[in-house]
Amino acid sequence: MPHEHLVFHNPPSATPAEVRAALGRGDLSGALNAMAGTALYGDGDWKELQELYLHLLTHDDHQVSALGATCRGHTARVYRQLDEGRVVAALHRARSIPHLSGTADNALGDIEVFLHPRRARWRGRLWRAMRSWTWI
């Protein structure tokens, strides 16, 4: 079996309209690239992206819904603002879906780190302090 070398690349900046268009024509690869492109660069409106990713969190395709959760964390990092109540509630619901549980947890962690850095630092310190007691 030959070994295939994959090369990582950041997708180009994209718009929510490009994500919708790619999904509409069934271009999964293009949709996934456009989703990452909308979240990574901060070129758009955070509210529009928030609505897009909240909608895609319930998409039928597992890759699209999982990337929708991941992009929530990227959006928190890039824009430093969210409608936190709605997004966190949606991600908490998504944690009960097997293929979304890990990415939803990661997105929740990113939201805490980027929107509440002091709270995240204290939580990390507490976890490190308590970790040594788990061996007893």
Rank of each mutant, 00 (worst) to 15 (best):
R77K: 13
L32P: 05
H74N: 08
S29M: 04
A69V: 15
A76C: 13
D43E: 15
H9Q: 11
Y41A: 11
D27Q: 00
Y53Q: 13
G44F: 12
S13T: 03
G24S: 08
A76N: 14
D61W: 02
A76G: 13
E48V: 15
H59E: 15
H55Y: 10
E48G: 09
T75A: 10
T58M: 07
Q50I: 03
L57M: 05
A17N: 07
G30Q: 02
H62C: 01
A39P: 10
A31I: 02
A34D: 07
Y53P: 12
R72K: 15
L52K: 05
V64Q: 10
L28F: 08
N33F: 05
G73M: 08
L57N: 01
A21L: 03
N10T: 08
W46L: 08
S13I: 00
T58G: 06
A34T: 06
L49H: 11
D61I: 03
E48K: 15
A31R: 03
Q50W: 09
S29W: 01
H59F: 13
L32K: 06
N10R: 10
Y41T: 14
D60C: 03
V64C: 11
S29K: 00
A31G: 02
D43W: 14
G26W: 00
D27P: 02
C71K: 06
L67F: 01
A69G: 12
M35I: 02
W46H: 08
R20D: 04
S65N: 01
C71I: 03
L57G: 08
T15Q: 11
D61Q: 05
A22N: 12
L52M: 10
L67S: 00
T38Q: 01
L54S: 07
L32H: 04
G24Y: 04
A22Q: 14
L40Q: 12
R20Y: 03
N10V: 09
A31T: 00
P16K: 15
H59P: 11
G68T: 07
L23A: 02
A22D: 11
R72S: 15
D61T: 02
G26E: 04
H59K: 12
T70R: 08
V64S: 14
Y79W: 15
E48P: 10
A66L: 05
D60V: 11
R77M: 15
C71P: 05
D45P: 04
H62S: 06
L57V: 04
L67V: 02
F8S: 05
A39Y: 10
A69T: 13
S29Q: 04
A21N: 02
R25H: 01
L28C: 03
D45A: 13
R25G: 00
F8Y: 10
R77L: 14
T58D: 12
W46E: 12
G42M: 14
G26K: 00
L54R: 09
L28I: 10
G73L: 05
A22I: 13
L52W: 07
V19I: 04
